[in-house]
């Protein structure tokens, strides 16, 4: 049972349910439309990277669709009982979870690359920047790559939460609190401690910035999101191996 075979199977599963198409449509519309509107509403910008960052705004909320997709890929297996069949076909459970993760990660990365390019084109076309938005500008490229990386990580976080909680409502709820509600709420609450906690949560990111949260330099922010994704994933893998189905 080569890993490639399990990957193919999970790819088929991903695209044979409607929720994937819904999440894709919501993500594309949220990111593409808001990006285009944000770029159109910004007449000029001092720097190319800032103009691109503005056009990426839609990723802030749009990424929730990726979290939901990641959760669903695992939680619907348990909600429907399909996990019985899947784990009978692929009894090496961590391998199954890894295949799901790779499939979701690939989906998030490919889709986000396409959308990031669209948003960069919007900024280039609609926002006046001295010297224009050049595709080779290292600041622009870094902003776009960070966006792609952050989107991949929240997808993995979704899969991981699905594996830990097994319940769609529970995992989506916790994910929303972790990435969307708690970081800005704590930032607004004020105080050093609240700000520190806010920085330690996996807030959705737009390019180099935490979305609606206490600002963190991008290496810190990305490390925090990555640590959450990997940490919860490992917990999910251990629980999946140990628990009965």
């Amino acid at each position: 049972m080569p890993f490639r075979a399990v990957l193919r199977s999970e790819w088929t599963k991903l695209w044979s349910v409607r929720s994937t198409w819904w999440c894709t449509a919501i993500y594309v519309v949220a990111v593409g439309a808001s990006g285009w509107l944000a770029a159109a509403g910004t007449d000029s910008s001092p720097q190319a990277a800032v103009a691109v960052q503005t056009a990426l705004t839609g990723f802030g909320v749009g990424q929730l669709a990726l979290v939901v997709l990641g959760v669903l890929v695992v939680s619907t297996e348990f909600a429907s009982g399909m996990a019985l069949v899947s784990l009978t076909a692929v009894p090496r459970r961590t391998r199954l979870l890894l295949a799901k993760t790779v499939v979701v990660l690939t989906y998030c990365l490919v889709l986000t690359v396409l959308l990031a390019v669209v948003c960069a084109l919007a900024a280039r076309t609609l926002t006046a920047v001295p010297g224009g938005v050049q595709p080779g500008d290292p600041d622009v490229v870094r902003t776009l790559l960070l966006q792609v990386g952050a989107a991949g990580l929240v997808g993995v976080l979704g899969v991981a939460l699905g594996a830990v909680l097994r319940s769609t409502a529970g995992a989506v709820g916790i994910a929303a609190v972790l990435v969307l509600v708690a970081p800005p709420a704590l930032a607004l609450a004020g105080g050093d401690l609240a700000a520190r906690i806010s920085q330690g949560l996996p807030a959705l990111r737009v390019g180099e910035d935490a979305f609606l949260a206490v600002a963190t330099p991008w290496p810190v922010g990305m490390s925090v999101v990555a640590a959450w994704a990997v940490g919860v994933w490992l917990l999910g893998a251990v629980l999946l191996e140990r628990r009965d189905v």
Binding site: M1, A5, S9, E10, S19, V85
Partner: peptide, 27 residues
Amino acid sequence: GALIDPRALHPGRTAYRHLLALAQSNG
């Protein structure tokens, strides 16, 4: 080959895709 619970299926998947995904997982 095992059949534990006939209702253990994703309701939104077609019969063909369900079987195809299973077949693919074992090559």
